[in-house]
Structure formats: C-alpha cells, structure tokens
C-alpha cells in the first residue's frame, strides 16, 4: 500500500505507425512527448479522440516500443510487457470463453502459481468488487459495469506496481459511469496505487485526478499540466465547489489553446 514505485518518466518520445502500403508515409502519432507520471499518484492523461492516447498506453505497457526517446519505469527502461504494469483496455479484454474467476486466475496461473493457492486472493478481490455471486458466470452474462470491475480484479490480482487504464469507462451509460468513477476513486484512495488513467472526458479527469496531463492533437505531446488540488477523499459534491470551477476553466482554456495551435 502506498509504496512509491511505479513512476514513469518519458523523454522526447516519438511514435509513428507504418502507412498502409510501403509507399504511404508513416503518420506520426506522438512527437516529442515528455512526461513524469509520479508514483502513488492518480495521473490522468486527457486528449481528444484519435490523438494517440491508446498508443501512449501501449508504450507504457510495453506492447510497442517508441521510435525515439526514452521511457523509464522507476529508473529502468521499459523493454516489454510485464505484469508489473497492467493495462485495462478501452474495449473489454476479458476472454469470453472463461468464467469470471478463470479470467482473474489467468495471470497468477500463467506465472506458475497453482490454481488452489491463487484462488483465495482472486475470490477476495471479486468479493470486494461485488462479483462474488458472478464468479462462475461468463463475461457476456455480466453488465458493462460488472465487466469493468472484473477487469480491475483481473489486473489487481497480479500486484502491479502501476495500473494503466485506457478509457476504462467509455461506452458505459451515464449512471453506471458515475457509479464506476466513485467506486474506482474509493479503490484508489484506499490503495494509492500508482496510476495512469486515460480519458477524453474533462469531468472524469477533474473528479479523479491528482494531476491532469493534456495532450495536443496528433502528432501529440503533453502541452499542459494541471494540478488538481481538490481534497481527498473526494465526493461527487466536490464538483460543485468554486475550486472545481476554476480548474475546469483552466483546463478548458488549455484544451482550446491546443486546438488553435493545431489550426495554424
């Protein structure tokens, strides 16, 4: 709890995808992207759709390597995927052919733990996420919110140093989304697990974040950092405070400035 590992430092990251054919040029997605995601903090990355948020998440998780620049986790270069950095996907990545419990057990069992010894922790997490009665169900039998909670359990059971969440609540209806945000916030405030949370929604960013990193449109980099000094533990009522309104104004200004820069 609260141990201060899981710090990401990115310096001058570049990433482009090869074009569809050999003759189409590579489109740069990230260009000179630098950041310092502090450990034990809820770092929120914000950007418009298609600006390269998922690309950044894949770099952090180690599925992809940057073309240029350095990316360090706790001072060590990121060299590949690993269970110390877990990514919760934008679209669900629960395997439809495994029960919820089997999905959660996949990580520990893959890393050589026996099913028996991994089960108590998995079940404790499922219990905590209100999924105890659903552990033998298949993902398609769960609601959207339940799937998201199952994914959190699937990631947390591995004791990651840092969690990367790529728009985890996108596609949920407004009510469920708000419930999940409150739920998630409580989880974070209890554990203070180092987190990179990616979103395109300003309200979500302000409600959750310790610090917001705003990305420009592609080729993107971090253009603005906003410290969200709203007190913790937060309640949804904090969105009605004066300080929230000020921060919101500051963020909106930054977002629009970014847009104008692109238009030039």
């Amino acid at each position: 709890m609260g141990d201060t590992t899981g710090e990401f430092v990115g310096t001058g990251l570049y990433k482009s995808y090869a074009g569809a054919g050999a003759d189409t040029p590579a489109a740069p997605v990230l260009a000179d992207c630098s950041f310092h995601f502090e450990a034990g903090k809820l770092n929120v990355v914000m950007g418009t759709s298609g600006c390269g948020k998922s690309t950044l998440a894949y770099l952090l998780a180690g599925y992809q390597t940057p073309d240029r620049g350095t990316l360090l986790i706790d001072g060590e270069p990121v060299t590949g995927a690993g269970s110390d950095r877990l990514l919760v996907f934008q679209e669900t990545a629960l395997w439809p052919w495994m029960t919820v419990e089997e999905n959660v057990l996949f990580g520990p069992v893959s890393r050589g733990q026996s099913r028996q010894s991994a089960r108590p922790k998995a079940n404790a997490l499922l219990d905590r996420f209100g999924l105890a009665d659903f552990k033998d169900k298949y993902p398609s039998q769960l609601s959207g919110g339940m799937m998201r909670r199952a994914e959190l359990a699937q990631a947390l059971v591995n004791n990651p140093k840092v969690m990367i969440l790529d728009e985890p609540f996108r596609g949920l209806d407004v009510m469920t989304r708000e419930l999940m945000q409150e739920y998630y916030l409580k989880l974070f405030e209890d554990t203070r697990l180092s987190t990179v949370f990616i979103t395109a929604e300003l309200e979500e960013a302000l409600f959750l974040a310790d610090r917001i990193y705003i990305m420009s449109d592609a080729p993107s980099r971090i253009v603005k950092i906003i410290d969200v000094d709203l007190p913790r533990p937060r309640e949804i009522s904090c969105t009605a405070t004066r300080r929230y309104a000020e921060l919101e104004q500051e963020a909106l200004t930054a977002l629009y400035e970014g847009r104008e820069l692109e238009a030039l």
């Binding site: 894949y58 998780a61 599925y63 995927a81 690993g82 269970s83 950095r85 877990l86 990514l87 996907f89 679209e91 990545a93 395997w95 052919w97 495994m98 996949f106 990580g107 069992v109 893959s110 890393r111 699937q154 591995n158």
Partner: peptide, 27 residues
C-alpha cells in the same frame, strides 16, 4: 481473435502455451 486478447495475455505473463490453449484454440 481481437488483438487485445493477445495483448492482455502477454501482459498478464501468459506463455506461448497459455496463449495457445487459453486464447487461440477457444477463440
């Protein structure tokens, strides 16, 4: 099979054998 299923499995430490039996064949 969606690419994310492979990514998730790599991330969670799945070996090639795990990927074959738990992701590819059922998928």
């Amino acid at each position: 099979i969606p690419e994310d299923y492979f990514r998730a499995s790599a991330c969670l430490g799945g070996t090639n054998t795990d990927i074959l039996w738990d992701v590819i064949i059922p998928g």
